[in-house]
Amino acid sequence: MILGKCPYCGGDVIERKTVVRGKKAKLYTCENARKEYDDSEQFVFTSDSTCTFRIYSNALLRYNKRSIGSNEIKNLLNDGQIKVRLHGRSGSSEYFKYAITDKEYGISILWDEECD
């Protein structure tokens, strides 16, 4: 399923199912970003990859956001940012922040920006 256009190269962003550290997750990646396991079992980009865009659905798990859905990725690609609901350490408090694409991490939280 095509979710939108890649912000880096203009290719199609697609959704793939994968396993990350033994847990099932979705990978939202550019069709031009190809990865494979090398000899040392590291998951690296292939020599014919022309893009590095990728976001794992569990990328914001450390902020107690369970998963990033395909609708959120569509909005992120169309608008350049999305509002995400995050939770405190105990899970009781919740707050909203904006998230944008990031070359190194896939997605980043704008901590200094306030959501209305």
Rank of each mutant, 00 (worst) to 15 (best):
E104D: 06
K83P: 01
T46P: 00
P7L: 06
S57W: 06
D39N: 14
S70Y: 03
R62V: 05
K35D: 04
L77W: 09
S47Q: 06
N75C: 07
S70L: 07
I14R: 14
G10M: 04
V20G: 06
T29K: 02
E104T: 06
R34Q: 05
E104I: 05
N75G: 08
A59H: 00
T29W: 08
D12E: 14
E15H: 07
S47K: 11
I82Q: 11
R89S: 13
K35E: 03
V13N: 03
G91D: 00
Y37A: 00
S67G: 03
V84K: 01
K17L: 09
C51N: 13
T52Y: 09
L86E: 12
I82C: 13
K17F: 10
K26Q: 07
C115H: 04
N64A: 05
I107D: 08
I55S: 00
E72V: 08
N78C: 05
A33D: 13
S40T: 14
R34N: 15
Y37F: 15
V20H: 11
H87P: 00
Y8R: 06
E94P: 01
R85P: 01
R21H: 11
Y56N: 08
A59W: 02
S93C: 02
R89L: 14
I109P: 04
T46W: 03
R89Q: 11
G11R: 07
K74F: 00
T52R: 06
R21M: 08
Y95W: 12
K35S: 01
F53H: 14
S90T: 14
W111M: 04
T46C: 13
I82Y: 11
F45Q: 10
I55D: 11
E104K: 09
G22H: 01
L86P: 05
R54T: 04
C115R: 05
T29I: 15
I109S: 07
K17E: 13
N58Q: 14
D116W: 09
T50G: 08
C51D: 13
I82P: 09
T50M: 02
L86W: 10
K83A: 10
V20E: 10
I14S: 04
C6S: 05
S49L: 11
C6L: 00
S47Y: 10
Y95N: 02
W111E: 14
N58K: 12
G91P: 06
K103P: 02
E41Y: 15
D38F: 08
N71S: 15
N64Q: 05
S108V: 02
F43T: 03
K103S: 12
R54V: 01
F96H: 05
R85G: 02
Y28F: 15
S47C: 03
D38N: 15
Y105Q: 03
L110W: 01
S57H: 09
G11M: 08
F45R: 12
T50I: 13
E72M: 13
C51M: 13
L61W: 06
